[in-house]
Design a binder for these strands. Structure first.
Lengths: 103, 103
DNA sequence: TAAATATATGTCAATTATGACATATTATCA
DNA sequence: TGATAATATGTCATAATTGACATATATTTA
């Protein structure tokens, strides 16, 4: 992960501590973020393909429009659990989820 | 998912409501559980391959032995986030995680 | 362009996950 | 066997995530 990417993520609310800490930021942390980002992007793709608005998707997953927005923009306040559950609610199979992660 | 499987999961603390509800239990819910189970199993496999005890893994991921046990036994109280983070802490790549999900 | 529709951002009380601890159960091995 | 190490289970106060709401911003359409 480079400085550019860091700035973009920090703007979204991700916290990374000192620059030093960031520079040796573990593979772990960046893999985790990358994973979430990929699945978030996939969720938006799926929703639009299904021609649903965020309000409509919110109904399906029993959540709210604002949370759907956060899901799709990679807000750090959303859990992987919710992202995955949302994907599954849209009919995504585990294999497709795996594909999205690998992509 | 069959009745056998259901009993086993309920013993672990999963909640499914009425039998009726369970019978039309969405693909969604069972996929979600299946996903967690696969990753949990993978975590245990990895830990033992690394010849770590649960206490040692707990140190690595800054958690406790009891939570590691719950991670590995598919306790419903553990999040996908923690499972994934633990896998990543053990050096698992996103691609490997994807493979585990697809398996 | 203005109105309407869609999405984003901020906040918060309630819900859920967390690490920690105690303790029970299960495996290992002398 | 019995001691010791490893894992499992139960509980709880604290921390993190949640849906909901208000409202801002962006996009579409008349």
């Amino acid at each position: 992960m480079n400085k550019q990417k860091r700035k973009s993520l920090e703007k979204k609310g991700w916290k990374f501590g000192s620059t030093e800490e960031f520079l040796n930021l573990s593979e772990e942390e960046s893999s985790y973020i990358e994973l979430k980002m990929k699945l978030s992007a996939n969720l938006r793709k799926l929703r639009t393909e299904h021609k649903l608005t965020q309000v409509e998707l919110a109904k399906v997953i029993k959540s709210s429009q604002s949370r759907v927005a956060k899901l799709e923009t990679g807000d750090p306040s959303v859990s992987l659990d919710l992202i995955i559950r949302s994907l599954l609610a849209l009919g995504t199979s585990n294999k497709e989820i795996a594909r999205a992660i690998s992509s």
